[in-house]
Amino acid sequence: MPRETFQQELDALLSEVLDLGGEVEGTLENMVQAMEERDAALAEKELGVDVRYKARGAEIDEECMILQARQAPVARDLRLLYTAQAVTNHLVRSGTLTEHICHALVDTAECERDEDLEAALVEMARTARRLFHEGLDIFRSRDIDRARNLQAEDDKVDLLYSEAMNLIANPSDGNAGAPEWRMRAALMVHYLERIADHGVDIGGRTVFLVTGERIESAMQQYINRDLREE
């Protein structure tokens, strides 16, 4: 097949991105478990991953630039490189946010907690993990039919976000938890909502990769097209 070397380079690049995605997923998994089980030691294992993820993200970026310079990609190859860079950015940001949450879990390990708010955080964390995994899996499989459900799931996260922020603003009587913990909880709520968004965006980028529709409305156009066909 023509351009075998180029195709191998593209495959290797994609493999790098998916490897990074797998590692970020692993960090996210440990964070959720640490939150569920109040396991500060598990959270502490993930401290420092941010630096590693950023370095790998920079390597992938550079590889994308070199491929564009050397191979002058067009059409699906160009969309792949563009998407690989965008997805890498989402992965690195998600890794950073996950590490921030792990820091908070470690720093507040001995603090008293508002159990209602903690339960809301755990539910948000599980949902964010699910959305991140789904977005990454859609990118891995290019199965963009699954992308249509992501938006609905993201709406659930937004609802959980509102509920959590309401709990922060209106603590339960008698068990509001330590002030430091409440403060960090507010940040964690925000970080989890962003991680979920990154998962949804990865799915949206994949719709662009496959269909070539404009990024800003790729997912909405795809959903609308399917609804019209139905």
Binding site: M1, P2, R3, P73, V74, A75, R76, D77, L78, R79
Partner: peptide, 19 residues
């Protein structure tokens, strides 16, 4: 034509996958 052509043969050609 160079970002998202409609036809597979066009895309194969512009991406150098022809043949």
């Amino acid at each position: 034509m160079f970002s998202n052509p409609d036809r597979k043969e066009t895309e194969d050609y512009v991406t150098g996958r022809f043949g």
